[in-house]
Design a binder for these strands. Structure first.
Lengths: 153, 153
DNA sequence: CAATTTACATAGACAACCTATGTATATCAA
DNA sequence: TTGATATACATAGGTTGTCTATGTAAATTG
């Protein structure tokens, strides 16, 4: 039972490093977290603030702030939810979609030199990596950790 | 040639999400970036500021600031480099090592529920994920991207 | 020894978070 | 209907993490 002990740490460390490296080297016109939110909106479609917060694993005020920035850039639109006047439905604008695409290109460009050198089997390994992380995220989300942040009693 | 296009983005997205999820759910007593720096020091041993900056892919002032925080917490020691009076050699203190271990335990705890459900082959896939990301990082570091951030002329 | 380079620190700014709290709407219970 | 409570989002205020630009001290070089 020695393996799993370092495995989780190694995985998180590698993921964090790759992520950090990419965010440092890609020449964004869009800040990192805002790009993440654009991607989420693209994936989910028009969504409420609280839905976005949950999906992004961040707090509602964080999303509110980010949305204000996105809106100031003209990347998202807001509309009242006809079923609930308290709620706001956020959707990606055409400009937002374009911004997201530019981010994707920038990220791709930064990783391409490395990816281009890979052959078929190596690309398969990359796919495994993606799948593994997604699966772990789903599994982790399903089974919330015993002691998240609170110490309760 | 469709695959590599989304592949890089998918990989970065998954890595970022996993990383963000873990940092949000693990109950750290140590801030994320500081933990990263502690881990780096543990890995490299006593190092100069500029060495740490390069290894962490961050700027020298960033490392300087973080080291001030780590030092304030008693987690690192500084010593003048006997060979070069300009340079400082940073090393992990016993307390720093303990802090790092506590971070590792916290991270492990947060990922364990998911990892514990995996069998041998699934664990192998996790190892593949770790290796793939490390290899990409090395490859990317070796072959610096064509247009990193500057637009020059 | 003056000029340049190198190693680190400081200054100032912004992004990205969080918790605590406020405001408006919805719901529910008399 | 009204008052209490819950829900959805916004605001306030603070910490962390980073960057670029620049300053200071020591090393190197011509």
């Amino acid at each position: 039972m020695t393996a799993p002990t370092t495995l989780g740490n190694d995985l998180l460390r590698s993921a964090a490093r790759l992520s950090r490296w990419a965010s440092r080297h890609a020449s964004f016109d869009v800040p990192f977290a805002q790009a993440r939110l654009l991607a989420l909106l693209d994936e989910l479609g028009p969504s409420r603030v609280s839905t976005l917060a949950a999906a992004d694993h961040s707090s509602q005020p964080t999303i509110t702030t980010q949305l204000q920035r996105l809106e100031a850039s003209g990347w998202v639109h807001r509309a009242s939810d006809p079923d609930d006047a308290r709620a706001t439905v956020i959707s990606l604008s055409a400009e937002g979609h374009a911004a997201l695409e530019s981010v994707r290109r920038a990220r791709l460009a930064v990783l391409s030199p490395a990816l281009d050198q890979l052959d078929g089997p190596a690309l398969d390994r990359v796919r495994v990596a993606i799948d593994v992380m997604n699966e772990l995220l789903s599994a982790a989300a399903d089974a919330p950790v015993p002691h998240p942040t609170r110490k309760d009693g």
